Simulated scan of single mutants.
Amino acid sequence: MKTTITYKIKLIAVICAFLLFLAVLKMPIEYYTLLRIIVFIGALLIITSLLKQTLWVIIFGIIAILFNPIIPVYLYLKAYWIPIDIISGILFLLILFFERPTKKIKKIEPTKQREFKRDKIY
Rank of each mutant, 00 (worst) to 15 (best):
residue 1 M to C: 07
residue 2 K to M: 11
residue 3 T to C: 12
residue 4 T to K: 13
residue 5 I to S: 01
residue 7 Y to T: 14
residue 8 K to Y: 09
residue 8 K to E: 08
residue 9 I to Q: 08
residue 9 I to D: 02
residue 11 L to Q: 13
residue 12 I to T: 11
residue 12 I to D: 06
residue 13 A to Y: 00
residue 14 V to C: 07
residue 15 I to V: 14
residue 15 I to Y: 05
residue 16 C to T: 04
residue 16 C to Q: 00
residue 17 A to P: 09
residue 18 F to S: 13
residue 19 L to T: 03
residue 20 L to A: 01
residue 20 L to T: 00
residue 20 L to Y: 00
residue 21 F to N: 07
residue 22 L to D: 03
residue 22 L to N: 08
residue 24 V to Q: 12
residue 25 L to D: 13
residue 25 L to F: 15
residue 29 I to S: 15
residue 31 Y to C: 00
residue 32 Y to D: 00
residue 32 Y to V: 07
residue 33 T to G: 11
residue 34 L to A: 13
residue 36 R to Q: 01
residue 36 R to W: 01
residue 37 I to T: 09
residue 37 I to F: 03
residue 38 I to N: 06
residue 41 I to K: 05
residue 41 I to Y: 06
residue 41 I to D: 05
residue 42 G to I: 02
residue 42 G to W: 05
residue 47 I to Q: 02
residue 47 I to A: 01
residue 48 T to R: 10
residue 49 S to R: 11
residue 51 L to D: 00
residue 51 L to P: 00
residue 53 Q to N: 15
residue 54 T to E: 06
residue 54 T to Y: 04
residue 55 L to C: 06
residue 57 V to E: 03
residue 57 V to M: 13
residue 58 I to C: 07
residue 58 I to Q: 13
residue 59 I to L: 09
residue 59 I to F: 07
residue 60 F to I: 04
residue 60 F to A: 01
residue 63 I to L: 10
residue 64 A to G: 13
residue 64 A to R: 05
residue 64 A to N: 07
residue 67 F to Y: 15
residue 67 F to V: 10
residue 68 N to V: 00
residue 71 I to W: 12
residue 71 I to V: 13
residue 71 I to N: 13
residue 71 I to D: 11
residue 72 P to G: 05
residue 72 P to Q: 02
residue 72 P to Y: 02
residue 74 Y to H: 15
residue 75 L to W: 13
residue 75 L to T: 02
residue 75 L to C: 01
residue 76 Y to H: 10
residue 79 A to Q: 15
residue 79 A to I: 15
residue 80 Y to D: 02
residue 81 W to Q: 10
residue 85 D to Y: 12
residue 86 I to A: 02
residue 90 I to K: 12
residue 90 I to Y: 09
residue 91 L to K: 08
residue 92 F to R: 01
residue 94 L to V: 06
residue 98 F to V: 13
residue 100 R to T: 15
residue 101 P to A: 14
residue 102 T to R: 11
residue 103 K to T: 03
residue 107 K to P: 02
residue 111 T to Y: 04
residue 111 T to A: 06
residue 112 K to C: 04
residue 113 Q to H: 11
residue 117 K to F: 03
residue 119 D to E: 09
residue 119 D to W: 02
residue 119 D to I: 07
residue 120 K to W: 05
residue 122 Y to H: 14
